[in-house]
């Protein structure tokens, strides 16, 4: 079955408009190759600044990019292709309140997709009430303005708007950011519920490992705009292959502090796209870095069925299964 979304070698470069840097560009993302099978949840994890939001925007054509994107098997190239993907998918913003127009009440906000795409909606008020009910808000919220909503309520309104046109793909950028723990759980349950009911496919973007472990079927780990590891969630959490993934998982808060691995802790800050390290981007913080990591850029390669990683040292790692004979040095491949 063709995946709902297929990205091949996607990259994003921001042109620098300064007087002395005209023509130059800042590389934000490169070589992003990903599949999102229909009906699944793909989790995109990475520290802040790794390019997660940029990737979400590139998929919807809000950010110019190069590479190949297929939505439901059809390439995204022209304006009308993007209009189609925007009609059939929805983006939930990291800051839900800011993604609502300050001058529109909730009713206008959540029925806006119908207006934009000239889709029949019946009576606006009924449709708004229906959508609000789907996300567990009383119909009276239709008259509220964004500044009269709490963080959790704004998030629910964002979900209602995302659902309006029955999308196939929902891209959720940090869906729990800024919410209290109990509200976070409510939102995640709501999203899971709606996925079941409407057969949605999710691309969930977050820096929160606990969240991604809970919701994602597969995960993709991003470091400084490069995929460093992809694979099924359970397998990656059981046996992380890339040293970065290992450090992330090791640094995760655990009930038993003795289980934390100090030797795998990431050192220092993420360098940032302006000071991207040469060769392997992670070598400046990698506890296992060797000479080759400072010399050559690794490629994303298959390390086990359905799993890829981008690291020179994987052969020396002990994965659960014996996988060294399946290594593919030629080109990155997708399962």
């Amino acid at each position: 079955m063709t995946p709902l979304l297929h990205l091949q070698d996607l990259s994003v470069d921001l042109p620098l408009g300064g007087l002395f840097s005209r023509g130059k560009a800042l590389n934000i993302l490169a070589g992003i190759t990903l599949d999102l099978p229909r009906g699944q949840t793909l989790g995109l994890v990475g520290e802040s600044g790794s390019g997660k939001t940029t990737l979400a925007r590139a998929i919807l054509g809000l950010q110019p990019s190069s590479g190949t994107m297929l939505f439901d098997g059809k390439p995204l190239a022209s304006r009308s292709d993007y209009r189609a993907i925007r009609r059939r998918s929805a983006l939930m913003f990291q800051d839900a309140a800011a993604s609502l127009s300050p001058r529109m009440n909730v009713e206008q906000a959540i029925t806006e997709p119908f207006t934009i795409h000239r889709e029949p909606m019946g009576r606006r008020r009924d449709r708004a009430a229906e959508l609000l009910a789907e996300v567990g808000l009383p119909a009276a919220f239709a008259a509220r303005f964004p500044h009269e909503l709490s963080g959790g309520q704004a998030r629910r309104v964002g979900v209602a708007r995302a659902l309006a046109l029955k999308p196939e793909l929902v891209i959720a950028d940090e869906p729990t950011a800024g919410l209290d723990v109990s509200v976070q759980a409510d939102i995640l349950n709501l999203m899971a519920d709606l996925k079941e009911r409407h057969g949605l496919s999710y691309l969930v973007i977050t820096h929160n490992l606990a969240l991604i472990r809970h919701v994602a079927d597969r995960i993709a780990v991003l470091y400084l705009g490069r995929l460093v590891e992809t694979g099924p969630t359970a397998e990656i959490f059981a046996v992380p292959a890339h040293p970065y993934t290992q450090s992330l998982i090791a640094a995760e808060p655990k009930p038993d502090p003795r289980k934390r691995r100090a030797d795998l802790a990431i050192q220092g800050e993420i360098p940032g796209v302006l000071r991207r390290p040469r060769a392997c981007e992670f070598h400046t913080r990698c506890p296992l870095a060797q000479e080759i990591c400072r010399q050559d850029e690794p490629v994303l390669r298959t390390i086990a069925p359905g799993r890829q990683a981008r690291c020179h040292l994987i052969e020396e790692k002990t994965l659960n299964r014996e996988t060294t004979d399946e290594l593919d040095h030629q080109s990155p491949q997708l399962s």
Binding site: L60, L91, D95, A98, S99, E112, I116, R161
Partner: peptide, 17 residues
């Protein structure tokens, strides 16, 4: 650059709208 304008674009709103 504000999120609610980017949100409009993400929903497919035309430039004129």
């Amino acid at each position: 650059q504000s999120d609610f304008i980017v949100a409009e674009r993400a929903m497919g709103a035309s430039g004129a709208r």
